[in-house]
Design a protein around this nucleic acid. Structure first.
Lengths: 141, 141, 141, 141
DNA sequence: TTTT
DNA sequence: TTTT
């Protein structure tokens, strides 16, 4: 069992890439999740958690979310390692999203305002504010 | 909101430390959480997640858990940064545990067998296999 | 372990009561939680889940939430039984909330608009949109 | 969002049925989930939560679980209503399971001991102690 | 590298 | 109708 539930705001617009081999869509963004307790004397009061979305969910998120937007994320923690420039091994912990629920709507003119004056292209999910993914995964990159 | 639920096995015995200032107990260990899906061609099939416990929960875990033990952890994701040896900034993601539930009992003779032939010292929690923490936090170190 | 995480809208204003003996505050409301999948042929597409809040959280919720408001609830499932009018035993399943996070703000004039033109009385929690409870419980009634 | 995570013991063997129309398998059982806090003076100290499993998960559970077994359940809360004998409307709250993880193994001779001296029939899932369902649902009955 |  |  490996379950995560988060509510927070995107710290920047999602980044969309495609896997070299299969061309699968992957979107990544960082979520600022407020802490409950007040940090003593100007301390940090949020956690910044890296979120990864695959395939349809990746495209949905990249097309419809932007910096500052409030979302709920359900998913799981994944860890992976990679070779750093200096040859040392580095470890990364991310949350792979199964579901992303949009909890607010962007103000026109903000960087997170996507689409024109009308309904966004993939509108079916937009309407419900919900989007689920098939759970299939891909080779990490 | 920042909620995590994990079930997995300790990859090593917990490490117990105390904060320099206040002397609060902190226990850390790594949890191997099996992935559901089969990795293609000999890939990794578990995530290794760093767990942090504070105060009473830290002592309970350090006194009663060992490598290989199966536990359920409820808590939240925290991120922090630190200065690496070479001066660069590194980022760490951990799960701070609110609850740890013991799901098996160690076989005598194994490295995770703690305590003698009788009931462990802090037996009240042992009996129920459950231990909760007050949620208080401390200055990270 | 008994953990629940919900996002939905109040189907009515919260109801505030006090326990006969100790006078502890209890607020109850029903949450409409949208289902992901489309029900075939006009079926129900939401679950209606009864939420119970105790003490400070109860008062906070009763003072600041109303019908139609969107919230996230973290808590646990509790079951209890009671004697029905006809003498038969009935069973009830509820979610006892540990945390309630407000995810939208009421439009002025709506039934869920509480407080005047200014900041509500218990404003400290309002500001963060978050409120946590001490976890203490009470004799059910 | 509607997420539930439970750890508890079956209060009886699972009951397996099939939907009238499509013949889909449904297994139901009740889970005793220990409460953290000590009930004052002989009070109840567990919640009894009804679990529903569909299709492959239903068959897996019915074939391999029995009274007293310890499991972790991940799923969602569902509510439904039905007509009682006396014509009145009754409401039911259940947890529909997405995943059931087996956390112990039955002692031979107990009512929960299923299968012979060897590996159970659907052994692939048994080995990992894990079984996931496709999430498809069915007309409630 | 951090959001309201 | 409730489990260890």
């Amino acid at each position: 069992m490996n379950k995560v539930f988060l509510i927070g705001r995107l710290t920047r617009d999602p980044e969309l890439k495609f896997t070299p081999g299969t061309g699968n869509a992957v979107a990544t963004f960082s979520l600022a999740v407020d802490r409950n307790y007040v940090g003593q004397s100007g301390q940090r009061e949020a956690d910044f958690i890296n979120i990864v979305c695959w395939r349809k969910l990746a495209e949905h998120v990249a097309n419809n979310l932007g910096k500052g937007r409030l979302v709920a994320v359900a998913g799981r923690i994944e860890t992976r390692s990679y070779q750093a420039q200096d040859g040392s091994k580095r470890y990364v912990t991310e949350v792979v999203a199964d579901e992303v629920k949009f909890l607010d709507w962007p103000k026109e003119g903000s960087s997170s305002y996507r689409g024109g004056a009308t309904i966004p292209e993939d509108s079916r999910e937009q309407e419900s504010g919900f989007f689920e993914v098939d759970g299939d995964d891909d080779i990490p990159f």
